[in-house]
Design a protein around this nucleic acid. Sequence first.
DNA 1: ATAATAAGTTAGATTAATCTAACAAAAAGA
DNA 2: TCTTTTTGTTAGATTAATCTAACTTATTAT
Lengths: 217, 217
Amino acid sequence: MASQTEENYLKALFHLSSEQAAVSISALSTVLGVSKPTANSMIKNLKDQGLVYYEKYKPLLLTDTGKKAAALIVRKHRLTEMYLVKKMGFGWEEVHEIAEQVEHVKVAAFFDRMDELLGYPTEDPHGSPIPEKDGTLNQPYYKRLSDCEKGAHVKLAALKQSSKEFLAFLDDRGLNLGADLFVEAVEPFDGSIIVRYSNKRESLSLKVSEKLMIEEV
Amino acid sequence: MASQTEENYLKALFHLSSEQAAVSISALSTVLGVSKPTANSMIKNLKDQGLVYYEKYKPLLLTDTGKKAAALIVRKHRLTEMYLVKKMGFGWEEVHEIAEQVEHVKVAAFFDRMDELLGYPTEDPHGSPIPEKDGTLNQPYYKRLSDCEKGAHVKLAALKQSSKEFLAFLDDRGLNLGADLFVEAVEPFDGSIIVRYSNKRESLSLKVSEKLMIEEV
DNA sequence: ATAATAAGTTAGATTAATCTAACAAAAAGA
DNA sequence: TCTTTTTGTTAGATTAATCTAACTTATTAT
């Protein structure tokens, strides 16, 4: 079927599409760490397979087939991450790298079994939704912490980024998914925000608070 | 480090070496399903990396480095198989295909965790020994059932082969690792053997009995 | 011992995924 | 608008892993 390389391109397109309507070759090549000509030629390949729409100089767009294929890879990735955390005792900062490799396993039963053993979870350890087996993605709507006002009482629901560094930063401050957060102050100058949670009081920069996705309590 | 392809060549050499002292390019190309020229050129590559000894027209031999590298891949494979059976509830006939893909994961901690969760097993679900972390292989000595005489009382310890078909054959007859077997008769004509175990009485062909590895009780 | 078969090698081509250099098109800024 | 910068494309080369065809060496069998 699709090579690991092709799968990685699809996945990158999937993630980029969720952030920006128009996905460029340039953005794609950057996130994948390849040159623009390389991305360009792979896009032609994916177009020939009916996985992306593409016209010269126009933005990239996944077809329905491409979207589904990508979602199923993301499903495998997120189920794996959840399995690693819940069943194997890994920390949420360790699982991305392993899942990145395990997600390419071609035996569906392997992931179905993880799903079953986990009790059909809907989110991964970073709060990202796990696509359904049919490729459907149930994207819950979360506000960013950075969009909250003073006095807000919210719950940390998901992260917009899951790099090791960011997760270590959160661990350092005892910030976990599900944490109850009280917005004590918002600094107008730099957008930093002071939150109180589980007997702690922390100042979070805008860069951090816009990556923390929350739901009202 | 080593590509998946290189890893598969090393693994094949490792397995072939345990059966035949002199490993040929031809045998290697057959088990890997590639042409002889392909195997030939990959062997030159592995030689350049110091993983095999090789002289034109001479048999192939893994170097110590190559042997260790191969053993570590086999370790990952067998730990994975054991994990799939013991922790995820797969049947012993389902695990080979999955392990074949999972074994290429590069994160050592993943396999270390499986090892720990399994309580440091020494054998995989088919009775094959799991190499140590340092690449050491503790190969226990087992006789073949086909070498037993009438009246022998033995225990099924391992399988010389683990194809889906063979495992299904054994499942059909309720033959599991650890089964107590009594040799009731050996047919001199075709070498078939009649065994009694857990209230069953079965006739096993030579082809089968020479793949059943046993230890005396 | 010689002929036939099997095994191993060389040469040359192919495909997927990548690169750099050079150029073209589009977008941004003055 | 016109220039500069960014983005995208084309052309051509490279590397890993594969193939087939043709040839050579080794082994086996009569």
